[in-house]
Design a binder for these strands. Sequence first.
DNA 1: CTCATTCTTGAATGTGCATTCAAGATATTC
DNA 2: GAATATCTTGAATGCACATTCAAGAATGAG
Lengths: 193, 193
Amino acid sequence: MRNAEFDRAQVLRGAMSAFMHKGYTKTSMQDLTQATGLHPGSIYCAFSNKRGLLIAAIEQYQQDRNEQFKLIFSDSRPVLGNLKTYLDNIVVECVSCDSQQACLLTKALNEIAAQDDEIQGIISQNLKLWQNALTAQFELATTQGLLQGDLNSEQRAQYLMMGIYGLRTFAHTHPQAEILQQLADKLFTDVCR
Amino acid sequence: MRNAEFDRAQVLRGAMSAFMHKGYTKTSMQDLTQATGLHPGSIYCAFSNKRGLLIAAIEQYQQDRNEQFKLIFSDSRPVLGNLKTYLDNIVVECVSCDSQQACLLTKALNEIAAQDDEIQGIISQNLKLWQNALTAQFELATTQGLLQGDLNSEQRAQYLMMGIYGLRTFAHTHPQAEILQQLADKLFTDVCR
DNA sequence: CTCATTCTTGAATGTGCATTCAAGATATTC
DNA sequence: GAATATCTTGAATGCACATTCAAGAATGAG
């Protein structure tokens, strides 16, 4: 007979940020109470435990990214231009690296997926959705006659994802905008060949 | 008046393997005593602490990789063939993923570099050496007239490293040899363009 | 063979952490 | 406005872990 007081999305974004900042293992519950504004009891009541909070945060992350994706790939503009914008955004994200603006999915994948099959599954599924969305864009571009090489749309999407993963890791040692932009530009060219 | 009994390289390879398997934070000292065959006291005597052991393991990793690199890029064979072999080896490594056969450097980079400037520096330096070695190979190929595009050797090396990082991450969700080989092949083509 | 030095052993220490829980606060219902 | 149900609070719990250290074992020198 009483509703929870906190805003779930808000809380999860706080947790997301904490996890991206320090990584899952090194983020303590104390960090999380601070990042979410919730007391331990509330977190355990709402998300079972730290792991549950991570899973919920991943879900929220996926939703937020999906919104952003739909915003960029609006149907009204040319496909390849949207794709370029998308990549440029990632470069900006990498440069403005307010300490580890990495993708939560890949970060969690690198850190814990090997230890936890369920989380591995969840992340794989989310990345698959992302890949499918990219494949659909390449398919669209192909039907519009914008792509001619002998790669199919799925292969292009895979190559692009590989490139984005790499770009993010590369940014850790080379946070300079110029270099990253150059790499992203070539990636764009190569994936459209 | 008495020498240490253990083989340093052997011990460090054990530690390397443990760190790659579970990640730095989640690898306990108990794991490390098992992986190295050393008792806690010996580890602390030889490497100060867990962090010191990681740093020593990274050093050893770099040495081992360097050996392997020199072996593949022997001067007597054609440069681009060597490069292809190198990439194919990485694919094999990714496929045979006996749980996280990731590169220790990139794994540590993803996990802890943001938290620890000294380790960040060490890893960056090692990756830089690696990049320089690749650059030299591209330079060699260029002087032999094998490469014509408008990229310089450093840019090629950077792009290749980006691709390799990405390939390794991609392998976590797609461990199939076919797919990875396809991606590696295209990466090779694009980097030589 | 004996002594001195160095290495090895692994139980003990203290700390930091995830998790729990009972008391208190707040809303909703009748 | 009382009663009830639900949520919030944060100190208490117990465990896992990195680290220490003192006793024991092995080696080399004389």
